[in-house]
Computed example of a mutant assay.
Amino acid sequence: MAWLTLTNYALYFESLGVGSYDKPARYDLATDLKQVVKREMTGPLGTRLFDKAVMYKSTTITEPIFLEFPEFKGHTRRDCWLAIIREVLNMHRFIKKFNIKEIQREEVLSMAILGIFRYRAVKEAFHMAPSHFKSTLAFNLTEKLPKGDIILEALHSQLLLLHTGYQRHNTESVSNKSQAALLPASLLTLSRLGLMSLKDPYMTEEKDLSGWVVRVGVQSPLELALRESICHSGRVEAARATLDQVKVEGIDTNLAVMQALLFPLAELGKYLRFLSSWEDPFKSIMFLAVSLYVVYRGWISYMLPCSFLSIAIIMIWNKYRSKGKPLEGFQVTPPPNKNAVEQLLILQEGISQLETYVQAANIILLKLRALLLGAMPQILQLHNIWIVCGIWMT
């Protein structure tokens, strides 16, 4: 038996036994310890069979810990705990990043707590993981959304206005509702629910305080940041949908697509093989002369930077020449339909060919080792030496 407790500052794990009690292990989420929290697969004897665990790693522990959530079907409990743990962790990262203190810090903590309460309420109401209601966990959501850093900056600016209104509230007499509305809304909500006590006596006396004040028809920086993030989210989803469309099933089909994509490299390899076969002596002699001249002049070190520079120039040229036009599709010749047994046979044949290539590479490496160490076996004849030297030069 075990008892897992999550607070707004740390995670506690307490093992319970019959007639025994161990001190709970505490894993701090508030300090900067380079924590990593992610889903993990576990199983007996180190096997990865069940996707029902949460992995936690930080600089204070030597090895990562794994928290397993046994469940007969699915991984709903694990996903729920992972989401709220990440929410607390991301909340403290936001506080440390902008150095938030005093009433701002209390408001941020209250926002995260209310989000976790809403998340749990949805889960209990629908008896399922609220995957479509993750917007209740604000800080966890901004880590996944594009332009999430802009949303956090806008939220910090909003909190600065909150801090200004709170200072004015403590120094001056408040006579209208517009200044009172600048008080921390989430903190006041928790206080009304009896979950948090307020230190300021005036704030406890007010009963009709509302949230932040916004002017009608004027978008706040936070709303503008959210709108921009939503626009970029649509582009990201469109890109993911495009990637999902090009995913095909079957080993032979994927090999056919890869062959079509690598067609330019395959043509280049065929041309180099044509030059090395000396079918056209003039072209082979010219290629050999140019290669020897490049080696003699010491230009080999410039080949890689020049290649990258040429690729960059080609990319810029294609960008301005296309002028936003979509790319032309390339044709892929689909292989004939085959059953699972035939696909396995093709895979076995490919593995055999790969084994042959590895054996040939090992033979070349052994010959090079023999040349370098000067231990020439009798079976290594003179023509083999020239072959190896030619491979070394190319």
Rank of each mutant, 00 (worst) to 15 (best):
A10F: 08
A10E: 04
Y12C: 02
E14P: 02
P24G: 06
P24S: 05
D28N: 15
T31W: 03
L33W: 07
V37N: 09
E40A: 07
L45P: 01
R48K: 15
L49H: 04
F50I: 02
M55T: 00
Y56H: 08
S58T: 09
S58I: 00
T62F: 06
P64C: 07
F69L: 02
F69S: 01
E71D: 00
K73L: 10
D79R: 11
W81N: 05
L82K: 04
A83M: 14
E87W: 00
L89M: 06
N90H: 15
H92F: 07
H92N: 00
F98T: 01
N99G: 05
I100A: 03
K101M: 03
V108C: 05
V108Q: 01
G115R: 02
I116K: 02
Y119N: 04
A121F: 08
V122K: 14
K123Y: 09
K123F: 08
F126D: 12
S131G: 10
F133V: 03
T136G: 09
A138Q: 13
F139H: 02
N140V: 00
I150D: 15
I151C: 13
L160H: 01
H163R: 10
H163A: 14
H163V: 04
R168S: 07
S173M: 06
S175R: 09
A180R: 14
L183K: 02
L188Q: 01
T189R: 05
S191W: 08
L193Q: 12
M196N: 10
L198Y: 01
K199G: 13
K199L: 06
M203Q: 05
T204L: 13
E205N: 12
K207N: 12
D208Y: 09
D208V: 03
S210Q: 14
V213L: 12
V213E: 09
Q219Y: 09
Q219K: 14
E223L: 11
L224V: 11
L224F: 12
A225Q: 06
C231W: 08
S233N: 12
G234E: 11
G250W: 00
I251R: 00
D252R: 13
D252C: 05
T253K: 03
N254H: 01
A260K: 15
F263K: 15
E267G: 09
K270T: 11
L272S: 03
S277C: 08
W278L: 09
D280M: 04
P281R: 03
F282W: 07
M286L: 15
F287W: 12
L292M: 07
V294H: 03
Y296W: 07
Y296C: 07
R297A: 02
R297L: 04
L304G: 01
C306Y: 03
F308V: 03
I311M: 14
I311H: 11
M315W: 06
I316F: 14
R321T: 10
G324Y: 04
V332Y: 08
P335V: 06
N337P: 06
N339T: 00
A340P: 00
E342S: 01
L354D: 14
L354R: 12
L354W: 11
Y357R: 04
V358R: 15
N362V: 07
L365W: 07
K367S: 08
L368P: 01
L368R: 10
R369P: 01
A370K: 06
L373P: 01
M376G: 05
I379F: 15
Q381G: 10
N384M: 10
W392K: 01
M393R: 09
T394P: 00
